[in-house]
Simulated scan of single mutants.
Amino acid sequence: MIYVLAALLPPIGLLVNGQPFSAVFNLVLIVFCAIFGLVFHILLLVPSAHALIAVHMKRERRMHREVVEAIRQHGPPPGYPH
């Protein structure tokens, strides 16, 4: 659901995901791309792409942190070479 929000309303999606600085940067990016997107239409997709990539990276970082914490608490999985 967060990916749909990030694609359709990039700054809102970033704020909901807990990335206020990325949301502000995305607003600046929207203004820049709206101006130059009149000539280069592909630029209109850049803010949504930025939001999708930022949301994905934050979620991957969270998941990685959870796995590392689980390994610290419970040790490596069985059969894992030391």
Score class of each variant (00 low, 15 high):
Met1Gly: 09
Met1Ser: 12
Ile2Pro: 02
Ile2Gln: 11
Tyr3Gly: 04
Val4Trp: 11
Leu5Gly: 04
Leu5Asp: 03
Leu5Pro: 05
Ala6Gln: 03
Ala6Thr: 05
Ala7Leu: 14
Leu8Arg: 10
Leu8Asn: 08
Leu8Trp: 09
Leu9His: 07
Pro10Gln: 06
Pro10Leu: 00
Pro10Asp: 03
Pro11Asn: 08
Pro11Thr: 06
Pro11Val: 06
Ile12Val: 14
Gly13Val: 02
Gly13Ala: 04
Leu14Arg: 01
Leu14Trp: 01
Asn17Thr: 07
Asn17Ala: 15
Gly18Val: 03
Gln19Leu: 09
Gln19Gly: 01
Phe21Met: 13
Phe21Ile: 15
Ser22Gly: 12
Ser22Ile: 00
Ala23Pro: 01
Ala23Ile: 05
Val24Asn: 00
Val24Trp: 02
Phe25Ser: 07
Asn26Val: 01
Val28Trp: 09
Val28Gly: 08
Leu29Gln: 02
Ile30Lys: 03
Val31Pro: 03
Phe32Gln: 08
Phe32Pro: 00
Phe32Ile: 15
Cys33Tyr: 02
Ala34Trp: 14
Ala34Tyr: 11
Ile35Leu: 10
Phe36Asp: 00
Phe36Cys: 13
Gly37Leu: 07
Gly37Met: 04
Gly37Trp: 01
Gly37His: 01
Leu38Arg: 09
Phe40His: 10
Phe40Leu: 15
Phe40Tyr: 14
Phe40Lys: 10
Phe40Gln: 13
Phe40Asp: 08
His41Leu: 13
Ile42Val: 13
Ile42Cys: 06
Ile42Thr: 00
Ile42Tyr: 10
Leu43Trp: 03
Leu43Gly: 01
Leu44Thr: 02
Leu44Asn: 05
Leu44Ser: 06
Leu44Asp: 03
Leu44Pro: 02
Leu45Ile: 11
Leu45Val: 15
Val46Glu: 04
Val46Cys: 04
Pro47Gly: 02
Pro47Phe: 01
Ser48Asn: 12
Ser48Tyr: 05
Ser48Pro: 03
Ser48Lys: 07
Ser48Val: 03
Ala49Ser: 09
His50Lys: 02
Ala51His: 04
Ala51Val: 04
Leu52Phe: 04
Leu52Cys: 04
Leu52Tyr: 01
Ile53Lys: 08
Ala54Val: 05
Val55Lys: 00
Val55Phe: 00
His56Glu: 11
Met57Cys: 09
Met57Glu: 14
Met57Arg: 14
Met57Ala: 13
Met57Gln: 15
Lys58Trp: 05
Lys58Asp: 07
Lys58Arg: 12
Lys58Met: 09
Glu60Gln: 12
Arg61Lys: 14
Arg62Gly: 07
Arg62Trp: 05
Arg62Thr: 12
Met63Cys: 09
Met63Phe: 10
His64Ala: 14
Arg65Pro: 03
Arg65Lys: 12
Arg65His: 08
Arg65Asn: 09
Glu66Ile: 07
Glu66Gln: 11
Glu66Pro: 02
Glu66Arg: 15
Val67Leu: 13
Val68Gly: 03
Val68Cys: 12
Glu69His: 12
Glu69Ile: 05
Ala70Val: 08
Ile71Pro: 00
Arg72Lys: 14
Arg72Trp: 08
Gln73Met: 12
Gln73Trp: 06
Gln73Asp: 14
Gly75His: 06
Gly75Arg: 06
Gly75Thr: 12
Pro76Val: 14
Pro76Phe: 10
Pro76Ala: 13
Pro77Gln: 15
Pro77Arg: 15
Pro77Trp: 04
Pro78Val: 12
Gly79Leu: 12
Tyr80Cys: 08
Tyr80Phe: 15
Tyr80His: 11
Tyr80Glu: 11
Tyr80Pro: 05
Pro81Leu: 06
Pro81Asp: 08
His82Ala: 10
His82Leu: 12
